[in-house]
Design a protein around this nucleic acid. Structure first.
Length: 134
DNA sequence: CTTATGACGCGCA
DNA sequence: TTGCGCGCCATAA
């Protein structure tokens, strides 16, 4: 976990993303977009980063799901039951449609001062999420 | 250098 | 409500 800091094979951006994911408590979930906001990048990149998580870091990568509250499908088309199973083992409930209840399990992010101290984005720059083409 | 490729998300039908 | 299209942009080749 602290390996993230000392691993120089990772790009600075990935390190920031992994550092945040590491902070998600058990039985709680964050969305790709949520992480993206804090590190100021596109949600797409967070997904890309999650697909490249080094095994030895032991990150709780399973606690990152999509904005629909569902476990994202892999490139091979598999819904990845592993991720869902890991969450259920922690006590995260899925409804009949395969979605988690954000009201119960949503991670509200690190404390404000932690984000400040570690140079993460607190208040999103008015939408990095969508095409804010001038 | 250029091109292809996503564990995404939003808008619209 | 679901499904599809397109924008997104860091990486890999």
């Amino acid at each position: 976990m602290r390996d993230i800091e000392t691993t120089n094979e990772l790009s600075p951006l990935y390190k920031r993303i992994y550092t945040l994911v590491e902070l998600i408590p058990p039985a709680q979930v964050a969305t790709y977009g949520q992480i993206a906001e804090m590190v100021t990048c596109s949600p797409r990149v967070v997904g890309y980063a999650m697909a490249a998580v080094p095994e030895h870091l032991n990150l709780p990568w399973h606690r990152v799901i999509n904005s629909q509250g569902k476990v994202s499908v892999r490139s091979d088309g598999a819904p990845s039951t592993d991720q869902r199973q890991l969450l259920q083992d922690e006590g995260v409930a899925f409804d009949k449609r395969g979605r988690v209840n954000f009201d119960e399990a949503a991670w509200h992010g690190p404390e404000w001062d932690w984000l400040q101290a570690n140079d993460y984005n607190v208040a999103p720059p008015a939408g990095y999420k969508r095409s804010q083409r001038a």
